[in-house]
């Protein structure tokens, strides 16, 4: 997990905006990844095994769209782009 945060930070430093989707957002903030999106779970950062397949895909799409929006957002310091799980 910390590896991913360090990689995101480095990719950003090399000019590539990077949406890091990771569950331990506190570690991502500490390492200093600029664009952080809270992942859905440690073993399934962009999935939700409790949902039926098609619902899960919609869930994933919503999460990824938060990530793509983060890529178009100006940031000056590490920031968490939050989302609320659809009920």
């Amino acid at each position: 997990m910390r590896c991913g945060a360090a990689m995101a930070k480095e990719l950003e430093a090399n000019g590539l905006p990077t949406a890091l989707i990771a569950t331990l957002t506190s570690v991502a903030m500490m390492v200093g990844a600029p664009r952080i999106i809270r992942g859905a779970g440690i073993t399934h950062p962009v999935g939700n095994p409790d949902l039926p397949e098609e619902e899960e895909r919609k869930f994933r799409r919503a999460l990824v769209e938060v990530a793509t929006q983060a890529l178009t957002t100006e940031v000056q310091a590490p920031r968490i782009f939050d989302w609320v799980a659809p009920v």
């Binding site: 590896c3 360090a6 480095e10 090399n14 590539l16 990077t18």
Partner: peptide, 26 residues
């Protein structure tokens, strides 16, 4: 090591005209 890997990846991505990255972590 994480930083070094990311530098390698960044170089490849830029050479292929990539503009942005989605990075998932567990």
């Amino acid at each position: 090591k994480a930083q070094a890997m990311a530098r390698g990846i960044a170089q490849e991505l830029r050479a292929h005209g990539v503009h942005g990255v989605i990075l998932t972590a567990t």
